[in-house]
Design a protein around this nucleic acid. Structure first.
Length: 284
DNA sequence: CCACGATCCTGCTAGC
DNA sequence: TGCTAGCAGGATCGTG
């Protein structure tokens, strides 16, 4: 579920809420679905964690990186329906909680996930973590991600834009919602082939990706059903979507009815007027 | 390299 | 009302 803006919002919340807290011993107080713990079985992880201070919380792609003392890293990926909450020790339980990291002050970091696709990793060094994250592409909101870099990534690539933009090895952070949004903003059809883009098309797409993600970060993410921030509150960006989840409604740009189709096995929302199919691509 | 289907799960909705 | 197929914001793996 969560894409870059939702993960970024959670990271900012957790940074404020848990940096400086110390993990209790043992460092895992609940884990009823061992498949979510990728690096170690629950008994081992519970032994490996304990008494470390939370030094920093950061984001890489859609991963939440919790940096601990003794160079340990607790890493979460929320996949479709995962949420991370910080709760006081006497807070009521959160439904679908499958992993709990307790702090010495009695408060808890809870990982809740309806569909149990979420993943938890414990890395014992920064190198170990970096190795796991090595295949990820650049961060689209960082200064280093320039128009020129995006040009290089897209040039020489074949295939339809939508699956390409969902590929985290090229650019990270985009998921189904924000790919749909960015393609609308740039006026490109999701099935347009990358090799047919002009430099101007590439630049418009680059600007659209940054605009759509920045706006969603400012709005604290999009809550369509499950996403909640670090304290269990909804995001606000669902009020500002251009096409995603808006099939049947008029396009805000031209009034044409927004349609829903399927591209690359993913629900795809678009304005047929603003994002026309590219007829010449069959000839190339 | 790219496309497609299956897979990991649960809950909700549409359609009969 | 009850059943069931299909779908949901992700990512990976195997096959062609």
């Amino acid at each position: 579920m969560p894409e870059l803006p939702e993960v970024e919002t959670t990271v900012r919340d957790l940074r404020r809420l848990i940096v400086g807290r110390v993990i209790a011993k043992p460092g895992l107080s609940f884990a009823d679905w061992p498949k979510m713990l990728i690096t170690h079985p629950p008994e081992v992880m519970s032994q490996l964690l304990g008494s470390e201070e939370v030094l920093a919380i950061n984001r890489r792609a859609k991963y939440v990186l919790v940096e601990l003392g003794h160079a340990k890293f607790l890493v979460f990926h929320r996949k479709m329906t995962g949420n991370l909450f910080w709760r006081e020790h006497d807070a009521p339980p959160d439904r679908y909680t499958h992993v709990i990291i307790p702090f010495v002050d009695g408060s808890e970091l809870r990982f809740a996930d309806l569909r149990k696709f979420g993943r938890v990793y414990l890395f014992l060094s920064r190198e170990e973590m970096n190795q796991h994250l090595a295949k990820l592409g650049p961060e689209p909101l960082e200064d280093a991600f320039t128009e020129e870099i995006f040009h290089q990534i897209m040039t020489g690539r074949k295939g339809r834009l939508k699956p390409l933009l969902l590929n985290q090895a090229l650019v990270v952070g985009l998921g189904n919602i924000y790919v749909n949004e960015a393609l609308f903003v740039s006026g490109l059809h999701p099935e347009r082939r990358a090799e047919t883009l002009s430099r101007d098309d590439q630049n418009r797409l680059y600007q659209a990706i940054r605009m759509v993600l920045n706006k969603a970060v400012d709005n604290r993410g999009t809550t369509l059903s499950d996403y909640m921030d670090g304290e269990g509150q909804k995001g606000g960006n669902q009020e500002h979507l251009f096409v995603h989840f808006r099939q049947g409604e008029p396009c805000g740009n031209c009034g044409t009815t927004i349609i829903k189709t399927t591209v690359g096995q993913r629900g795809t929302y678009l304005c047929p007027q603003c994002q026309p199919e590219f007829k010449e691509q069959g000839l190339t």
